[in-house]
Design a protein around this nucleic acid. Sequence first.
DNA 1: GTCTGCGATCTTGGTCCAACAAATAGGCAG
DNA 2: CTGCCTATTTGTTGGACCAAGATCGCAGAC
Lengths: 249, 249
Amino acid sequence: MSTDAVMLAAMAADAAQEPAKVSAVDRLVEQIRDLVRERALVIGDALPTERDLGELFQAGRNTVREALQILKAYGIVEVRPKIGAVLSDRHEDAVRKLFSFQNDISPASFLDVQGYRRIIETGVGDHLILHASAADLDHLDAVNDRILQNRSVDEAARGDFAFHEALVSLAGNRTLLASYRLLQPVITHIMRVGKAAKPVQIDTHQAHAQIINALRARDRVAYVYLLSRHLEFGLQFVGTEAAPGAQGS
Amino acid sequence: MSTDAVMLAAMAADAAQEPAKVSAVDRLVEQIRDLVRERALVIGDALPTERDLGELFQAGRNTVREALQILKAYGIVEVRPKIGAVLSDRHEDAVRKLFSFQNDISPASFLDVQGYRRIIETGVGDHLILHASAADLDHLDAVNDRILQNRSVDEAARGDFAFHEALVSLAGNRTLLASYRLLQPVITHIMRVGKAAKPVQIDTHQAHAQIINALRARDRVAYVYLLSRHLEFGLQFVGTEAAPGAQGS
DNA sequence: GTCTGCGATCTTGGTCCAACAAATAGGCAG
DNA sequence: CTGCCTATTTGTTGGACCAAGATCGCAGAC
C-alpha cells in the first residue's frame, strides 16, 4: 500500500502543475480570500469567527489562526477581540512596514534616498511644468502654508513631507505616488534630523514657495535648481561623505 | 556608519509608534529578530526548533508557529520540513508579491506603470547623459545584445526587462533600483503582452540601441524622445483609453 | 577488523484539540 | 439611562498524534 500511496502522490503531483506541497495554512489563506471575493465583502465587513472558518474549511482553529496571521501580515485583515477578523485597508501600511524591514537588514544611506527623491521630483516637475493647472499650484501653496502652523519638530516634518507628497501626487500617477510613500518613514526622519538641528519652518516654507513659483513660471531650469538646493539643504545634517552616484543631476 | 545608525533609529522609531499593546506573537517576532541579530546569523543559518524557541522565550509552540508564519510572510525565514526554520533572502520577493497583491492588473494600471517608467527612466537619463562612462554604455549594449538570443516570449520579456533594469541601475541609486524592481512582475507582464501580439526581438533591440546611442551622444532630447516612443510602442497592445495623467510628458 | 547496507528510532514540522484567560458585545435588571 | 452579568470570541498555552527526514546502530559482507 505504500507503493499505492507513492503512486497516488506522483499522479497528484503530475496532475497539478505546482507541487502538491500546499500546506493547510496556505490553502486556508486562498480559501479565505476566495470567501471574501464570493461574498463580495468590503472594507470593514467581518469574517466568520475562527471556529466557523475552521468548520467551514475543515481545519483546526490553530490552522485558521496561522492563516489569519499571514493575512494580517499582508494588511488585508485586522482582527479585533470579540468581533473577529474584519477586512482592513492597511495593505499599504503593510507594504511600507515590509519595505522598511528590508532596509533594516541592508540599510540604504540617506544620501541614496535623497538622490532618489531628486530623480522622482525632478521628473514630476517635467510633467507639472507642462500640465499643472493654476488650481494645482494653488493647492500646493495651501499645503505649503500649513507648514507655518506646525509647532513641534515632528509636525514640521510631517508638514514638509505632505508638501513633497502633494507635489508628487500632482503627477497623477498612482504607481509613482505609491513608491514615493513607501519611503515615508525614511524621508520624514531625514526631515526630523534637519529640523531638530535648526528649526526652520520659515526657510522650508520659503524654499517650497520658490519651487511653486518656478512651476508657475514654467521654468524647468529654475525648478530643478531650486529643488536640488532644497534637497541638499537637508543633506548637510546627515553626513558629509560624497554621494555614491545619482546625487548630481 | 553614523548614517546607518540614524537609519536604524528611524526604522525603530517608526516601528515603535504603536501602543504598548503588544501581543505575545508580536513580541516573539521581535525576539526572534533580536536573536538573529545577537547571534549574527546569516542567510542559510538555521534557527532553533519551534519547541526550543518556545522554551527560550517562554511561549507555547503554537504561538511560536504564529510568529514564524509572520516571519515567513515577510520572506526573512523559510521553514523547511524536518530541517527547521532557516534564514532566507526571499525578502525582496515577499515585498514584490505584497506590492503587486490586490493591485490587480488592469489596463489602467498598465498605463500607470508605463507613465511611472517614463518618469523614472527619463530621470535616469538626465544622470547618465552627464555621468555615464563608455564602459557603462558598452555594458548596456551587451545586455541589449542578449535579447537577440531569446527564443520564447517569456525569455524575450525577461531580456527586455533586464535592459531597462540595467539602465536604471546605472544611476547607481539603490533606492531607485529597488523601487523599479518592485514592479518587475507588472512590467514583464506588459512586455509579454506586447511581444505575444507580435514577436519583435529585433525591433526591441534596435529601439534600445538607439536609446544607447542617444546617451553616447549626450543628447537629452533624443533620449527622452526615443525612450517615450519605445514605451508608447508597448502601450498600443494593452488599451486604447486616454492615460489618466502623467502619460504625456 | 572494517566497511556497507538496512532498518529502528529519534527528531521535527504540520495539524488538531482542549482548556483557560482576557476582553467585550449584548442583554438584563434596576 | 445606567450599570452589572453573561455568553461569545480571540489570545495563549500545553499536549497529542502523524508523516517524513535524520540519525544511529546492528548485522552481514569483504
